[in-house]
């Protein structure tokens, strides 16, 4: 582990002592190159697990998202736009957490029912519905989204993320399409 330091020390050492590099026998030369190569291999063998260990969270799998019941259908009358909490499955260390950490805006319009993730596509603040202006407004940098989720003002690069939504047995169900939205 601490070999690397000594090696570089050695390299610098030569620059100061400035000894000429001649006179080395070819066989000796090869030995040293071999030693260097082997040490590099060891360093890699030791370093690779470290890197993989550090990057382990990249491999953690989030449990597949399932349909979750949000509320009764009657709670969202025609024309209403209300915010509801929903669970976002997340791998957190050794456990799969499923806290009610997500906010979803459910909007019922004639002939359609939409579910928008409240996360602004700009920098991730939560947008709020402003009935007066008929827009979703982001409090952080003034992003504006239409009732259909399209960007109508401010810096957001994409429309609001939509969740799958269905009505079944008098209740509203949503399902996120994968990772955090």
């Amino acid at each position: 582990m601490n070999r690397v330091g000594t090696e570089s020390g050695a390299l610098e050492d030569v620059s100061v002592s400035a000894a000429d590099a001649g006179g080395g026998l070819p066989r000796r030369c090869m030995l040293l190159r071999l030693a260097a190569a082997l040490q590099a291999a060891t360093a890699a063998a030791l370093g690779l697990p470290v890197v993989r260990f550090l990057l382990a969270p990249l491999r953690s799998r989030v449990a597949a998202s399932e349909w979750q019941r949000l509320t009764a259908s009657a709670d969202v009358p025609l024309g209403a736009t209300i915010a509801l909490k929903y669970r976002i499955p997340e791998a957190e260390g050794y456990r799969q957490s499923a806290a009610d950490t997500g906010t979803v805006w459910v909007a019922r319009r004639p002939g359609r029912l939409d579910a928008f993730s409240a996360v602004c596509t700009h920098l991730g603040c939560n947008v709020a519905w402003e009935p007066a202006r008929n827009v979703f407004a982001c409090p952080c940098h003034g992003g504006l989204f239409s009732a259909a989720g399209q960007v109508v003002g401010g810096p957001p690069p994409r429309p609001l993320t939509q969740l799958e939504i269905k009505e079944e047995g008098g209740a509203i169900w949503v399902r996120s399409k994968g990772n955090r939205v």
Partner: peptide, 11 residues
């Protein structure tokens, strides 16, 4: 790892 180490030690 053993082969590499033995190599280094030998050299």
């Amino acid at each position: 790892v053993l082969i590499v180490i033995m190599g280094i030690v030998f050299v």
